[in-house]
Amino acid sequence: MTPELSRFDPLKRILAFDDFDRGFCGWAQHQGNYEGSLDSVLPGYAQMQPPMLSTLPNWDFGSHGGVDGGYVMKIQTLPVAGARSSAVKRLTFRDACPIRLEFYFTFKPEASELTLSESDVRAFGLLFDLQSGDRTPNGERVMPHLRFLNARDGDHVQKWQFKRAVEHAATLSNKTATHDHMADSGWEDLPGGDQKLCYNEIATKVNWHYGRIDIDLATLRVTGFRINDRVHDMGAFAEMRMPAWRNLWCMLNVLFFVETDVDKRAWAAIDSVCLSSAE
């Protein structure tokens, strides 16, 4: 196994290994659905900013770089409290089997003040957007959501949450609909999900965290979730579930997102991602 892959614990088959020293690797801005006019994009998506390749430059010691290379994927919000941005990788699956997503991440607010500002980032999160195959009886669209609620109104909360509530879908035509499923509403605390993450001592330093989530595509259910040394109990976790949408068969989309709690840009950086499957 190569040194780049040795920091992961993949299943039998590697579906994607994304090291952003090689470019965007298929990740892009999460563009909201529209039809006929861009004005039909929901406000929650209209605020989204495109991800960038970054060396994580800063004003006091140059560039931070990634775990073992120069570039990472950086997702950054607008400087408006509650603003959110996300990046997506759009795939489909060929086997309804167990899959595993592993990644190294960090987050921080824009270093515009000489203070730690550890409560300026509201949340960092990830989700899958999945749909069963077209011949699956009673097909479903299933969206497992997880977010680390870092802060709320200056309170350094630090806990993981999930979302099962389905946001109202706006119908744009008989072919296209849209819903703001990452909206800051309907989130529930993951029991035992409080976790203190390493947050270095000045505004420009970061430390990388390891994340892993396991999903069984046969049942479209989450089977495991780990952040650093913590394997979280997912017994009470529930996915966002709805009847299958007409055009999304065998969909396997992965998203990361970040949200700011103050009128300052918040950003999340992903160093590398490994998506693997059991078959």
Rank of each mutant, 00 (worst) to 15 (best):
T55F: 00
T55S: 08
P57G: 02
N58W: 00
N58K: 02
N58V: 03
N58L: 03
F61A: 11
G62P: 08
G62E: 01
H64R: 10
G65K: 01
G66I: 02
G69A: 09
G69R: 06
Q76H: 05
T77H: 01
T77L: 00
P79I: 01
V80Q: 03
A83R: 04
R84L: 14
S85T: 14
S86G: 15
A87G: 07
A87T: 09
V88F: 02
V88Q: 05
K89G: 14
R90N: 15
R90Q: 15
L91G: 00
F93I: 07
R94V: 13
R94S: 11
R94F: 04
A96D: 14
A96C: 11
P98L: 00
L101S: 09
L101D: 04
E102N: 05
E102G: 03
E102D: 08
F103C: 09
T106A: 06
F107P: 11
E110N: 13
E110D: 15
S112R: 08
L116W: 01
L116H: 04
E118Q: 11
S119R: 09
S119P: 10
D120C: 11
D120A: 14
D120V: 12
V121N: 04
V121Y: 03
V121T: 15
V121M: 04
G125D: 06
G125C: 03
L126I: 15
F128S: 13
F128Q: 10
Q131M: 09
Q131D: 13
Q131S: 14
S132A: 10
S132Y: 05
G133Y: 01
G133K: 03
G133S: 13
D134F: 08
R135Q: 14
P137C: 01
P137K: 01
P137S: 04
N138C: 12
G139K: 00
E140C: 13
E140L: 14
E140A: 13
R141L: 13
V142C: 08
M143D: 14
M143Y: 09
P144S: 01
H145K: 13
L146T: 10
L149N: 12
N150S: 12
R152E: 15
D153N: 12
Q158P: 11
Q158H: 08
W160G: 11
W160L: 14
Q161L: 12
Q161I: 11
F162C: 08
K163T: 10
K163Y: 00
